[in-house]
Each structure stands twice: as C-alpha cells, then as structure tokens.
Simulated scan of single mutants.
Amino acid sequence: MAEIDAKIKNYRTAPFDARFPNTNQTRNCFQNYLDFHRCSKALSAKGQDVSPCDWYQRVYKSLCPLSWVSKWDDQIEAGSFPGKI
C-alpha cells in the first residue's frame, strides 16, 4: 500500500490508458469520473476507507473541464445523471 501512496503523491498528469489511445480524451475523462463514484460508493457501503478511489479522482480532475464536473455533480444530486453509478 505504501507503493501506491508514493505513486499517488508523485502523480502529475493522467497516465496513458490503452483503452483510450486517441487524442480525444473525453471518454477517458467520463470513465474515470464514473469509476471514482462507483469505487467510493462500493467501499463506503462496505464501511472501508475510500482513499484508493483518490486515483480516479485525480485522473478525472486532470482530464475533465471543471464545468463538466460541476454539471455532472449537479445531475447526481438531482438524480438525473445519465451514467450508471
């Protein structure tokens, strides 16, 4: 776990993801946003620490425009988010 924490602290930008090889990283942004919320929901339901989910949050925050993230957060609160979380 110490290795993961060290990698997260040294994190600068989103690393290459082979699932998204193209220049357009919109899908990568959205997928990491979904993965963060799924991860935090699953771990909090089990009563575990959600710190491993920080990786997804850091990646989507480096890839996604802030306006998208705030819009998605508002949609989650309103119950109208299109993704499956």
Rank of each mutant, 00 (worst) to 15 (best):
M1C: 08
A2W: 03
E3N: 07
E3Q: 05
I4E: 05
K7W: 05
I8C: 09
I8V: 10
K9P: 00
Y11D: 03
A14V: 14
D17K: 09
D17M: 06
A18I: 04
F20H: 12
F20K: 02
P21R: 08
N22H: 10
N22V: 06
T23L: 03
T23G: 04
N24P: 06
Q25H: 06
Q25T: 10
T26I: 03
T26M: 04
R27F: 05
R27E: 11
R27Y: 03
R27M: 11
R27Q: 12
N28E: 06
N28A: 11
F30G: 02
Q31P: 00
Y33G: 00
Y33W: 02
L34V: 15
D35E: 05
D35Q: 06
D35G: 04
D35W: 04
R38L: 03
R38P: 00
C39E: 01
S40A: 05
S40G: 06
S40V: 03
S44T: 07
Q48G: 06
D49L: 08
D49W: 06
V50A: 12
S51A: 09
S51M: 10
S51H: 07
S51Y: 07
P52D: 08
W55A: 07
Y56A: 15
Y56N: 13
Y56W: 07
Y56V: 10
V59N: 02
Y60A: 15
K61Q: 13
S62M: 11
P65D: 14
P65T: 06
L66M: 14
L66S: 15
L66W: 01
S67G: 10
W68F: 14
W68Q: 15
W68N: 14
V69N: 00
S70E: 14
K71A: 12
D74R: 15
Q75I: 03
E77C: 00
E77A: 10
G79V: 03
S80I: 09
F81D: 02
P82I: 05
P82W: 13
K84R: 03
I85N: 08
